[in-house]
Amino acid sequence: MDAFQFHDMKLTWLNGGVTHLDGGAMFGVVPKPLWSRKYPANDSNQIELRTDPILIQYQGKNLLIDSGIGNEKFTDKQLRNYGITEQSKIVASLGELGLTTNDIDYILMTHLHFDHACGLTRWQDDQLIPTFENATILVSQVEWDEMRDPNIRSVNTYWEANWKSIVNQVKTFEQQLEVLPGILMVHTGGHSDGHCIIRLTQKGETIIHMADIMPTHAHQNPLWVLAYDDYPMTSVFAKQKLVREIVENGYWVSFYHDAYKRLIKWDTTGKNIIAELPRTRESHTTAK
Rank of each mutant, 00 (worst) to 15 (best):
P33S: 10
G194L: 07
R199Q: 14
G28H: 08
I213L: 15
Q59M: 14
S140P: 06
Q87W: 01
E178C: 10
F6Q: 02
T51F: 01
Y158P: 08
D125C: 00
M185L: 14
S283R: 02
A218N: 02
H187K: 15
W13E: 06
G204I: 04
Q169K: 10
D193V: 07
G194E: 04
Q57G: 07
G204F: 04
N42P: 10
T285R: 01
T136C: 10
M26H: 04
G60V: 07
K265M: 14
K10H: 11
T285Y: 00
G270V: 07
L200Y: 10
T286V: 13
E174D: 15
L263M: 11
P232Q: 04
E143V: 06
I273H: 05
P33F: 13
A41G: 09
E48L: 07
A3E: 14
M1R: 09
D126F: 12
E72F: 12
L49T: 02
I90W: 01
M185R: 02
S165N: 09
K32T: 10
E178V: 15
D230H: 12
A287I: 09
T75L: 03
Q202S: 15
Q124L: 13
D230E: 14
A227D: 13
D66R: 11
V179K: 04
A135Y: 02
R122G: 01
F237A: 11
D193Y: 14
M233A: 09
Y260P: 01
L63H: 03
A238E: 11
L180G: 02
V91N: 12
N162Y: 00
C118H: 09
W163M: 04
E160H: 12
N221R: 08
M26K: 10
I69P: 00
H209C: 04
E48C: 06
N45A: 12
E86T: 04
N221C: 05
Y106T: 03
R279Q: 11
A227M: 04
P278R: 12
C196Y: 01
F173R: 08
V91R: 13
E143D: 15
D103K: 07
Y106S: 05
E48I: 04
F173Y: 15
L11R: 05
V167Q: 14
L138C: 13
V91Y: 08
I104Y: 03
P222N: 10
E146P: 00
F6W: 05
L200P: 00
H113R: 11
R148I: 08
G190V: 05
P40R: 07
L112R: 01
L99M: 13
D66T: 15
D125K: 14
H284D: 09
L180S: 03
I129M: 05
F4C: 02
I84A: 09
G119C: 05
T286A: 09
Q220F: 13
G70W: 01
K164G: 04
Q127F: 11
L138A: 06
L34N: 09
N272K: 12
